[in-house]
Nucleic acid binder design. Structure first.
Lengths: 362, 362
DNA sequence: AGTGAACGTGATATCGCTCTCTTGACAAGG
DNA sequence: CCTTGTCAAGAGAGCGATATCACGTTCACT
């Protein structure tokens, strides 16, 4: 059962006097103080604060008044000590400074997570281990129950953390498809379907030689988008042609290099689906130098719909992901697995939206 | 005095047996358990764990072994209850979904903060109030001592939060110059000097009609960059000309609109200093349409050095900010004010670096 | 009327840790 | 030989909440 705090902190802070409350020093009133003020026992105040139904209306009102008068806020430490809950969850980001930190994916995700948590009166603790030692410390920290559950994002294939957490029985959900072998609940966008729809779109404007610059093949996003590209070709009855596939890491330079390879291997291509906007930007610069105008000679589609997409010249058609929603869904999943003791793993795939712009005008 | 935990959690978790430690269930060993295991009192274990010097070497070793054997991790709730410290700090972001969420500023700042905190064994709690009610709740939460101190970023002029926190005596530092009237310590980049150097750079490549698209004039960054622009002109002995100044919010569209106004008011301008890269991108698109090639006819300089800058065509000269360092410095300042009881406010200005690219080639 | 279920309230035992005091051991000084 | 000082280690009192009982009341139903 989810804890529902019935206590609203929105009341006025006393009647203008100098209540023995929070103001001034940092010391807040205690349960005991409120009990005295209201003329009841600590237990009763606790019940009111926690929204127990077993309190008579008058007493409840009296207590609520006392709470407001004193500006009482429960001491989380004391509460945690006995409930063995921290009412906070950990957001673990294991990412070596790269991708995540160069695009707005991360702030948006955070916003979604935060919004959904605050609706539940939970707090987020941010955890970004910098190195091996920190990750070990982190494991201990999480295993010790300092947070009630963990959200992991941006996992790489070889990270031992999720396995260890699972072994310690720490409730956990993963953002983005986790590496094989891990049976954790996760939320991801439907990369495969998204890529397929991008290919469909390019075919829809008459392109017949559709190439792709895929992402790293050790990451879920990279793999799935390539799969989807192939699905799309198959669905359209187009032949599979390996000269039309290049891979790159999610960078500008990587995209540029891959585009050069594609042009060399298949000079007659007339469209490119890039696995990220940054890759597309790199590709675009190469196409420009090569004298292949976009979209006339080569149509281009990116992925992420970052601010970059809109600012490019020509503006880039791109696949938008519901990132905030992903954050919210992660929280929902985690909270669910916290409430029930069930450990059934669940997978959630969110759908995407193709945003057409000038880079793929028919 | 800063708490230094002498306890390293990096040791092996027992010798392969099934220690009564953390593994398996989520229940960790307690101080008492460790004390029994080591044949000493709780107090002594506590001293070892907290790095007190008043413990003989043998006893210390014995305790440390017991700690490692049991995989003991201190219970933060219990500790907080008595020390009245939470060993965590709050990062408050009051931003209506806009700017912060469309550029990599935020993840980088977070990384800096996180790195510096984890070196001190402190945790970050992320707080993003969504509306008025949430902000009130937040105030109570912070006032109740749930965190030891607060870092505020992206403050807007009319936000009452910092004032209220100050009144409640919550230790606090601010990222970015705070609105006037607030006497809090803060860390900012030297926007003024940065803008001045951008102007100097443009003059250095022979431009004589240097315009600016300034940011919102209710934000420190917007104001200071405009000031710096004016300083630059003065320093170079150039006349101040209000037709060469337009303001925009930090968006692509805002930048485009401002550029149109500038071209109308001062068709003979030959350089533009934009207060952000996104603004510059908007300006660039307008210049292109207007048939004013960059950098030949008009040189362009942005601010932030976001990934956008590098991907633009031509690549954008921009001012790089030491964002991670800003995060680290914020933490240092906060921790300092936590340690000493001194409430002296301090200001730290970090210097920036101009990254020249094709958009301002002489 | 009598029994007991239901319900509102209070007393009290924890939760795991820190920290102040006290104790005990041993060395130095008179 | 006793006092005094030093220093390591233990004993014990909370910190502020929750949760389990126990204790009246009130009511409904035999």
């Amino acid at each position: 059962m989810t804890r529902e705090s019935a206590l609203t902190f929105d009341g006025a802070e006393g009647r203008g006097g100098a209540p023995n409350g929070t103001s001034g020093n940092g010391r807040s009133a205690t349960l005991d103080g409120v009990a005295r003020e209201a003329g009841v026992s600590r237990a009763t105040v606790s019940r009111v604060v926690n929204g127990s139904p077993k309190v008579s209306p008058d007493v409840r009102r009296a207590v609520e008044r006392a709470v407001a008068r004193l500006g009482y806020v429960p001491n989380q430490a004391a509460r945690s000590l006995v409930t063995r809950r921290s009412d906070s969850i950990g957001l673990v980001i294991t990412e070596p400074a790269s991708r995540l930190f160069d695009d707005p994916f991360f702030p948006r995700l955070l916003r979604g997570i935060s919004a959904e948590l605050s609706a539940r009166n939970l707090q987020v603790v941010l955890l970004m281990p910098e190195d091996e030692a920190a990750e070990l410390r982190l494991e201990r920290y999480l295993g010790a129950g300092h947070v009630d559950g963990v959200i992991l994002v941006s996992l790489h294939g070889d990270d031992p953390l999720p396995g260890h957490l699972e072994a310690r029985g720490v409730p956990m959900v993963v953002g983005g498809r986790p590496p094989a072998g891990l049976s954790a609940s996760f939320v991801d966008v439907d990369n495969r379907e998204a890529a397929r729809s991008a290919v469909r779109h390019l075919a829809g404007i008459g392109r017949r030689k559709i190439a792709t610059i895929a992402g790293p093949q050790d990451m879920g996003a990279g793999i799935d988008r390539l799969e989807g590209y192939r699905d799309g070709l198959t669905e359209l009855g187009m032949p599979r042609d390996d000269r039309l596939v290049a891979t790159a890491d999610f960078t500008y330079e990587g995209g540029a290099a891959a585009m050069r390879r594609l042009l060399a291997a298949a000079p007659d291509l007339d469209a490119v689906f890039a696995a990220s906007d940054l890759i597309a930007a790199g590709a675009l610069s190469v196409l420009r130098v090569a004298g292949r105008p976009v979209p006339e000679a080569v149509a281009l589609v990116g992925f992420d719909d970052s601010p970059l997409a809109e600012a490019m010249e020509p503006p880039l058609t791109s696949v938008r992901q519901p990132i905030e929603e992903m954050g919210r869904e992660l929280v929902r999943l985690l909270v669910e697995s916290l409430d029930r003791t069930q450990r059934a793993t669940r997978r959630v795939l969110l759908s995407t939206e193709l945003v057409p712009r000038a880079s793929s005008r028919g």
